[in-house]
Structures are given as C-alpha cells and as structure tokens.
Design a protein around this nucleic acid. Structure first.
Lengths: 338, 338
DNA sequence: TTGAAAGCGCTAACAG
DNA sequence: CTGTTAGCGCTTTCAA
C-alpha cells in the first residue's frame, strides 16, 4: 500500500475547491486565467483562497503543464557588481512577462557551470542564460539534447549554441592598447584575469597582445600578470610590476576592479598618475569616474546586454527563429589616468 | 480522454529502466542512493543513462518525495558586494549538504519580498533565508502557515520568526558615533540609507541619534541625509552637507558604499581628510582599506552570517529546535579617515 | 462557464 | 537487492 494520508497536510487546490463548492479545475482556471470564470464563482474562490491561506503548488502545476516560467541564469560571481547590472536587465524584462529567474554562480569554473546547467535542465527551466561563450562538452551536449532556448552573454561566439548578446572583448582590449599607444605610452604592461577557463579574459589578453603587435611593440611576458578580480589583487599586481620593471609607463588592467585597485595603490604611495605610470581599465564601473584622476576605461552596455538577452530568449521560448548574435559594442572613456 | 502522447518526448526514468532491464524504482534508487543497488545493476543503469542523455526530472521527484532540497534566499540587491559574502557563506554550507540556493532580490521593497516568499513557498523550498527582520504582515502570516524553517539575517529581531543570525546595527552605529566623539569631533553629520522600509538602516540611524544624545550633542535634522546605497550618492550627499554647513567636522555614513563615495569626493576636491572633514563608514568593505586615508569603519562577519544561517536552517530542516538568535557582533576599525 | 477523468514523472510504502 | 502499486497536486483534454 502506498503512503499514508497525513492528518495535517497543507491546503491543496482540492481543499479550496471544496470550500468554494466548485471543481478543482475551476480553481485552477481562476488562478491562471480569471477571465474564464464567472464573476460570482471567482469571488467565492478568492474568498476560499484567502480564508485557507492557500499557496498554489508550483511544482505540481509545472509537472502537469510542462512549463515552469522559470529562467536559469549562470553568472561567474555575485561579488562583482558588473554582473548585477546584467541581472537587473534580465530581471526587468522577465519579471514583466511573468517569468522568474533562477540565479547561480559558476565561480568561473566550467565544471560548476555544467552541474548548474544540469540542475536547470532537471528543473525544466524554460530558458537558460549563460555568461560567456565557452562551455564544457557535456554542457553543450546537454543543452542541445534538452532543446532549451539558450542565450550566451558578454562575448561574441564564433559558433553560438543558440542566440548571443555581447561585444567583442578582443576588440575592446585592442582598442585600449591603441589608445595608450596613441597617448605616447610604449612600455605597456597588463594585469588580466586568470585566463585558463574564461573566454572574456582570454579575448582581452589576446586583444592586448594583438594591440601591441600592431603597434610594433614586443610583448614581454614579465609584463603580463594574471590574478582573480579583486581590488587587492590589482594593487598587488601593480606593485609587483613596477618593482619588477620601473620603466613600465602604462598598465592596462583587463577589469576595472583590478584597475581601481591599482589606481588606489598609486594614490596610497603618492605616485603621480599618469606621470609615474598611466592606468587603464575595462568595464566602465561607476567608481572609476569618482576617483581622481578619473579612470580611463571601456564602457559597454551591461544592463542592455541583460535586456536584449531576455528579449531574444523570450522570442525563442515563443518559438521564433534561433541563431541571432547581437554585438552591442563598446565605448572608450578617456579619463585622466592615462 | 486525457492528453495525447507526444511522439518525441524527453527521456524519462521509465525509458532508462526499460533500457537497463529494471524497474523505474531501481533507477530512482541508483540515482538517489547507489549503495542500495548491486554493482552490476548499477553499471547497466549508468550506461543506460549515459546512452540516453537522461536528466532526472527534479520537479516530479520533489512532488513525489515532498522535498525539494532547495533553499530560498532573499537579499535586497545584488549590486552591493557585501551581500555576496553572505551568499557565499550560505552557498558553501548548503552545497556541501546537497541543497541548491534560489536567490531573489527584494530591492528593499517589502511587497517584492512578499511576492518572492510566496513564490518560494509555492516552489516548496525546504527553508528560507531573509535579509533583515521586518517583513509585511502577509509575509509573516504565509511563513507561519507554511511552517517552513526561516532564518533572518543581518540584524537582531526582537520577535524572531524562527531563528536569526546577525549583529546589532543600532549598537554598531552608536559605537561609531562614540568613537568620533572620543576623537574630538562635535559636529557629526550623517548619511544614511532610505530608512522607511529597511530595519538595518533604521537601526543605524537610531544608533546615530542615540550616540549623539549620549554624548550630549543635539541632532540637527539638516545634518541628516538619506539616499540609496551608491558611490555617487555618497559623494553628492557629502558635497551637499558641506555646502549646507561648512562647520561640519565629521560625517558618518551608514554604509561603506556611501562613505567611500564621500571619501573619493573629498580626494577629488583635494579636501584634506580628516582635517577638513573626518569620514567614517560601516560595513568593513575591502576597498575602504585600500584608500588613503584608510576608511574608519565597522566590520562584521558577513561571510560567517551566511555560514551560521545555513547551519541553523539545516538544524531546523532536520527537525531541531527553533528560536535561536545569534549575535555575531562587530568590530570598529579605526582608519586614518577619522 | 463548468466539470470528469486521466496522467505529467517521480518516489513512498510495502512485499518478496 | 528488486519490484508492484498508488499517489504527490496540478492541468490537459474532451464533454456538457
């Protein structure tokens, strides 16, 4: 014999229906499409719901209807507010359309991302938004097999999983190196993220190298540092670079978190920026504009990436064509720091 | 007659079972408790899973087992990295125990929080972590009715919903005012958050007022500013305060985001800190330590709040007693800014 | 506008 | 160690 009936189980739709003197399906309709139910019946049902404190069991509903109205989102970290802007954009669009966001952090780890994606598919989310364009083989396979709409954000994939919204991290970094070169800097060092599993960071580093090459400058490996995106690490890397080679005249940090850390380090040491060393970042963080000298950086539409990603995903969920890759571009902000 | 069978439906547990020549329940056991299944059977099942690309339908499982292994977490915002530390702590503990986190932002709005909590209850999460200790009536009622374990974080409730982990925001603010007073400051202005629906901010402002009162100083309402937690707003509020009353000798900002913004504003203007105006914050953000002068602030165990909250919630989920309120305390960091 | 019946995909309970 | 059966709470389908 199967499970016993619990004496004190939570209120179900059937309970509400009994109370209102209707069938369960009528309660279901009252909740999902009230226009289908007569005003009198609706009122009785609403009263029954209020009296009983009924909360609809979303899982059971999703199982029956085969739609969760949930979107899974993977971001690398939550501690960096730059992803928060994108999440905000996603959330604005989806919330208005009655979708909920499931947010998870991969911590820049493809294996964690893979587990998260598996969990999302297991939850039968209606769509998935990923940060970045490189993913583990199993991740790609699972997504293909599940036929869930996917959007890749923050970079431009050569072979998109489905749709994508971003900008060229490579071009952005190259543009910054060109800018520094045009300002007369010739010994341009680099502080980047840990590249080995992050396509944005990889693209930025490649852009740096390409930019130097195009300017006819040689890349010195001792001028390249890689470190996790934390203020402190930017400060430490800069300090280390200058110690290693005091002739460095500019440092390009592939993220504003690192650049701001580096800039604050200079200010602490009373090093004149950009006279002793010029600094540039990439992200267009608001804090860069508050520091003196203002941080030279590259701004891109973080919020809009979220908005457009959500719109494309909704299109896909509603059955429209796939394969769109949108380049939202970027903009160089010339501050006083370089 | 009920629904038609779809020709090309996703793989189910029954499909895997057929393929492996076992019953569905055996597949279920192979997934949830492999030790219960013989090695040979397990191997066949695992092969069948791999071949078919099966992903377990978590919703159906949760419906049947009446447990989701999901925890709902409400934070005010994601753009402020201070909450990220707490989320990190929660996530470390829960992930190790096989639970997943559902993260949602209330945007400091009790009505949004209410809707989020309703959605969490609808999803039948196994536990809920809330930021703050004041919640709408319906929120409290729903949580009580649903009998879901709850932890309130970041402040100390007088009447907890269930358990709570935090520190006294009131005492922290008061301690900072005392510190400023002991340093000789007598005209101490205040930049706080928008208090009308945020207990931490309210407590901090009350602490400020109490601190002044205990020092025998009068609160001038023109010395109190309230603004959302953004760097820019801290800068603007400071600028406005000093313009209003140049005799102000210290400004206490109820959040490091505001304090750092204010401090950067001073540096931009070449105002000597603390000579022209002393500055103090509250949160112990890492960036405060990188600026010169270092920001005087109050540190509290943001990460540990997450860890302990998770531990208490797990205790509750596993049926242990409720009603624990843990005060994790705080620590004043005397920097050069005051 | 409302209802009856079936079943979504899984696991609890019990049996062997 | 493995299987049978019933049912979790909801919505789809068809019918009135």
């Amino acid at each position: 014999m199967p499970r016993r009936i619990l004496a004190d189980r939570p209120t179900t739709m059937a309970d509400v229906a009994r109370r209102a003197g209707v069938a369960a399906i009528t309660v279901s309709r009252a909740l999902s499409n009230p226009a289908q139910v007569s005003a009198a019946t609706l009122a009785r049902i609403q009263r029954a719901i209020a009296e009983s404190g009924y909360v609809r069991h979303a899982l059971a509903g999703s199982l029956a209807s085969n739609a969760t109205r949930c979107i899974g989102v993977v971001v690398p970290v939550l501690s960096n507010s730059i992803f928060a802007d994108t999440l905000q954009g996603l959330s604005e669009v989806f919330e208005e359309q009655g979708y909920r966001l499931l947010i998870a952090c991969s911590q820049y780890d493809p294996l964690r991302e893979q587990r998260i994606v598996e969990a999302f598919i297991g939850q039968r989310v209606d769509g998935i938004a990923l940060t970045g364009v490189t993913h583990s083989g199993p991740t790609r396979a699972m997504l293909a097999r599940a036929r869930i709409p996917v959007v890749q954000m923050w970079n431009l994939p050569t072979r998109p999983l489905d749709c994508a919204v971003g900008f060229s991290n490579f071009d952005a970094a190259r543009a910054m190196v060109r800018h520094l070169f045009s300002r007369g800097y010739r010994r341009i060092a680099y502080i980047g993220g840990l590249t080995y599993k992050n396509d944005r960071t990889q693209a930025r580093e490649r852009g740096y190298r390409q930019g130097l090459a195009e300017a006819g400058l040689r890349v010195k490996e001792s001028h390249v540092r890689r470190t996790p995106f934390e203020f402190e690490n930017g400060a430490a890397a800069l300090s280390d670079l200058i110690e290693t080679d005091p002739s460095i005249d500019a440092v390009f940090a592939a993220s504003d978190v690192l650049a701001v850390g580096a800039l604050l380090h200079c200010l602490r040491r009373d090093w004149p920026v950009p006279r002793k060393v010029a600094l540039a970042g990439l992200d267009g963080s608001p804090i860069g504009a508050l520091i003196k000298p203002e941080l030279t950086s590259i701004r891109f539409p973080r919020h809009q990436i979220g908005v457009r990603s959500a719109e494309l995903l909704l299109d896909r969920i509603r059955g429209r064509a796939a394969g769109v890759v949108e380049d939202l571009g970027f903009e160089l902000i010339a501050g006083g720091s370089a």
